[in-house]
Nucleic acid binder design. Structure first.
Length: 116
DNA sequence: TTTCTGACGCCGT
DNA sequence: GACGGCGCCAGAA
């Protein structure tokens, strides 16, 4: 078989984040699915909270309903909102249109998700 | 060890 | 849409 070295969920998530195009978003659940953890959206949320996201585009992760999941009005909430607006993502109040902005992973991205 | 707590999602009112 | 309930599961208390 091919070398299937175990990669932690955190690693997978952190590796996937940079692949999300500017101006697009993904939901926690979608991200969980993409890294092989179906049904574990909360885990993704915890990873983003705990891990050092540094200059990664963590702001492109929103709830499946298209809402910013941080406490409304908090620093993080304002920051995520501003970053998305800066990328051209129209946010009405605390919500954006997932049908319009949700990222559909392309073939290149899918290949990058697999171990090289 | 047990219980509680979430950057969540899905499904049925 | 909005809400409530339940499943999920790793850390913290």
């Amino acid at each position: 078989m091919y070398d299937t070295k175990p990669v932690s969920p955190s690693q997978r998530v952190l590796q996937l984040l940079p692949l999300i195009p500017r101006g697009r978003v993904v939901s926690y659940g979608q991200l969980a699915d993409l890294v092989g953890l179906p049904g574990r959206a909360r885990l993704v949320g915890r990873i983003l909270r705990v891990e050092d996201t540094g200059n990664l585009p963590w702001h492109r992760v929103v709830s499946a309903a298209g809402r910013i999941s941080l406490p409304e009005g908090s620093d993080g909430w304002h920051e995520q909102r501003q970053r998305l607006l800066a990328e051209g993502v129209y946010i009405k109040g605390n919500r954006l249109d997932m049908r319009k902005y949700q990222w559909q992973p392309d073939l290149v991205a899918m290949l990058m998700l697999m171990d090289h």
